[in-house]
């Protein structure tokens, strides 16, 4: 946004909404980092904390919903303000879903054995690190209203797909070696899939940001990696 609104309280309400989305984003990012950490380190002590932080994220979502409804009713926003309001709604929905997926992954730590092979975790970690970076970049592009960066995130989801494929393969490999691994391997497959889905929500956020900035949706279909094409 450029000039300020003539009505100061309108300006404040919009600013407050954007701030809420930024705060929700940073909370979602920390939760994703923590849940990834818990999976890789098989740290069962941190599960409760991660689950609890999801409540905080959900609260933000309801708060943002209320703020949006108030803005729509009070201000009937137009043009950039309308797009700002609508994208806040969409972005907060995607953030909430990412939060749910991180929580789900944290819950999967419980049945994991402490001596998982390094290669297996290594592939999962590479995927997790990329998803975390994607979330960080997309939030950065939201804060700085950077169209190019948001579009880059959108395109880079292809790499998330590829790493998902690799991580999945290594879990299946591990499972095929010994049927005893079935129980927790299933959890690891779900955890991998959750990261891939978090990646999809991140691309949704990137799309919302591009729409917010230019007023039009990204054209063409997003480059897709191996896992999707299977």
């Amino acid at each position: 946004m450029s000039n300020e609104h003539t009505v100061k309280s309108y300006e404040e309400e919009l600013r407050y909404l954007i701030d809420s989305v930024i705060k929700m984003g940073s909370l979602t990012e920390s939760q994703l980092v923590d849940s990834m950490d818990a999976v890789i380190k098989v740290d069962k002590d941190s599960i409760d904390k991660i689950i609890k932080s999801d409540d905080e994220i959900n609260k933000f979502r309801s708060k943002i919903d209320t703020q949006i409804m108030t803005l729509l009713v009070k201000r009937a926003p137009m043009a950039i303000d309308l797009r700002e309001t609508i994208s806040s709604l969409k972005i907060s929905q995607d953030l909430e879903r990412i939060g749910d997926l991180s929580k789900s992954n944290a819950k999967k730590v419980k049945p994991l054995p402490l001596d998982l092979p390094e290669e297996l975790l290594g592939n999962l970690k590479r995927l997790g690190d990329l998803v975390i970076k994607q979330l960080n970049d997309v939030l950065d592009s939201y804060v700085n209203k950077n169209y190019g960066k948001a579009k880059e995130v959108w395109e880079k989801d292809e790499q998330v797909d590829d790493l998902t494929y690799i991580a999945m393969e290594s879990v299946i490999d591990f499972l095929s070696k010994d049927k005893k691994n079935l129980d927790f391997s299933t959890h690891l497959i779900f955890a991998t899939k959750n990261l891939e889905r978090a990646g999809d929500h991140i691309t949704n956020i990137a799309e919302s940001i591009c729409f917010l900035i230019k007023g039009e949706y990204l054209k063409g279909s997003r480059p897709k990696g191996k896992v999707i094409q299977q």
């Binding site: 450029s2 137009m78 309308l82 797009r83």
Partner: peptide, 16 residues
Amino acid sequence: FKNPDNKMTQDYITGR
């Protein structure tokens, strides 16, 4: 009203 080309239009319709 959704995406005007001119900044002045945008400033006017958004109350700036």
